[in-house]
């Protein structure tokens, strides 16, 4: 299971609408690399496969492939704004270590 905070869901809708991608879901993927070993990857997609897990959070369909799912189980995605920038923040209970910018993690 993977959740968006209300603030993150609003931002996802805003971006999706701005890019004319209404109806598409949010693909959450884990890829190898990044300072701490694994990195998160987010993009819109309208296709799923039988290898995907599908969730709906605050009206946003979320697609996670079975390999990535084992690394992000229980993760909450927030959206934060600050003086040093804004972006989606992953709160992953499986991450034992994250890099300074928060975009990569180790398990």
């Amino acid at each position: 299971m993977l959740n968006l905070t209300p603030r993150a869901a609003d931002k996802v809708k805003e971006i999706r609408d701005a890019e004319g991608l209404a109806g598409q879901g949010l693909r959450v993927r884990v890829i190898g690399g990044g300072c701490a070993g694994f990195s998160y990857d987010l993009f819109f997609e309208d296709e799923t496969s039988e290898l995907d897990q599908t969730f709906v959070s605050h009206g946003i369909p979320i697609y996670v492939d079975m390999m990535s799912a084992q690394y992000v189980e229980g993760t909450e995605i927030d959206y934060v704004e600050g003086l040093q920038g804004a972006g989606f923040k992953f709160v992953n209970p499986q991450a034992k270590q994250t890099c300074g910018c928060g975009s990569s993690f180790a398990t």
Binding site: R29, V30, I31, G32, M67, S68, Y71
Partner: peptide
């Protein structure tokens, strides 16, 4: 190999 997740590698 530990860091090959779903990539075609």
């Amino acid at each position: 190999d530990r860091y090959v997740i779903m990539e075609d590698v």
